[in-house]
């Protein structure tokens, strides 16, 4: 069974790390055989915006951010792992398994 994850990435400048982190998370999830949807909040605006449905479907939320998450209220009641935007760039699989552990240990 594939695990389902959503994530939001954002960095201070909103040009480089936001998108590298998103790409690293997607790659990591794929390698692990999981499904992930990633919303990027960068200088060009919000892309791949997560819908209410996505939020309902996902088991866990990852914030890989160095700034405030926009429209954070959407995720109320979900289990959230917040890490610096550099964390998935360094090791995305670790970030994803940390997030999954949060729910598994609950």
């Amino acid at each position: 069974m594939k695990r389902k994850i959503i994530a939001v990435t954002a960095c201070a400048t909103g040009v480089a790390h936001t998108f590298m982190a998103a790409s690293a998370l997607k790659k990591g999830a794929k390698l692990m055989g999981n499904l992930i949807k990633v919303e990027t909040q960068g200088a060009t605006g919000v892309e791949n915006e997560l819908t209410e449905k996505d939020v309902n479907i996902a088991e866990v939320v990852i914030f890989a951010v160095d700034t405030k998450v926009r429209n954070k209220g959407r995720f109320d009641g979900k289990i959230i792992l917040e890490v610096p935007v550099n964390a998935p760039i360094k090791n995305a699989e670790k970030v994803i398994s940390d997030a999954l552990r949060l729910i598994d240990e609950k």
Binding site: K2, K4, L35, K37, K53, D54, I57
Partner: peptide, 8 residues
């Protein structure tokens, strides 16, 4: 290659 059906 994100499978929307699988996600839902």
């Amino acid at each position: 290659d994100f499978d929307e059906a699988e996600w839902e």
